[in-house]
């Protein structure tokens, strides 16, 4: 008896190169450790942390979240277009990612500048040490991600990527989504978490 299957089984896979998932995994664990340590330090002086939290601009932080979510969406659309070999649409979605990435950098820079202008630095108190360290390391990730997206955008305009050549864009996209999801936790942790 011959069994003919008409179902196309899509094998389970991780997008991009395996190494980027080692990065994503390690980064996630490292940030989880940092969140834990932040909460540990907060336990020692909740009043100080609460008072310092009030100096942060919640609206700006919320807008930053929307910016990064939109950026992730744009990059995700680029990958969807790549999967369907819609090569001409890929560059504009990647550019959307670049633009929103840059918007985040500008927003953060303004926020930092504002803090420095008010004499608030990492050395001011433990909360600010954490605020600058966590958002600073995250910002380094945003800068790296935006640079990589820019590189992708330039290459995509020359048709370097397609359905069968999408490992590099998928890897960068996965990293970019990590950057987005880290901020999704960072933002409430620093800006929204009110004390009991």
């Amino acid at each position: 008896m011959v069994v003919v299957t008409t179902e196309r089984v899509k094998p389970r896979r991780l997008p991009g190169v395996e190494g980027v998932w080692v990065f994503i995994g390690a980064d996630s664990v490292i940030f989880a450790i940092l969140f834990l340590t932040f909460m540990q330090d907060r336990l020692k002086d909740p009043a100080l942390f609460e008072a310092s939290r009030h100096t942060l601009n919640m609206n700006l932080g919320g807008i930053d979240t929307l910016i990064l979510l939109t950026s992730s969406w744009s990059v995700a659309l680029a990958i969807q277009a790549l999967k369907r070999d819609l090569i001409d649409r890929v560059p504009r979605y990647l550019f959307g990612g670049v633009l929103t990435g840059l918007m985040f950098v500008v927003s953060k820079s303004i926020e930092y500048f504002h803090k420095f202008a008010h004499g608030l630095t990492p050395g001011t108190n433990p909360f600010y040490m954490w605020y600058f360290t966590l958002t600073g390391i995250h910002l380094a990730h945003v800068l790296l991600g935006t640079s990589l997206l820019t590189f992708l955008w330039i290459r995509s305009r020359r048709g370097a990527y397609s359905r069968s050549h999408r490992e590099v864009p998928e890897s960068v996209a996965s990293f970019w989504h990590l950057v987005d999801l880290l901020w999704i936790v960072l933002f409430p942790l620093l800006y929204l978490m009110k004390a009991a």
Partner: peptide, 19 residues
């Protein structure tokens, strides 16, 4: 990951004395 992280954060929050 997100649920473990949220649980740890909330655990600490409830363990932190009110101001």
């Amino acid at each position: 990951w997100p649920f473990v992280v949220a649980a740890v954060i909330l655990g600490f929050w409830f363990a932190t004395p009110a101001i």
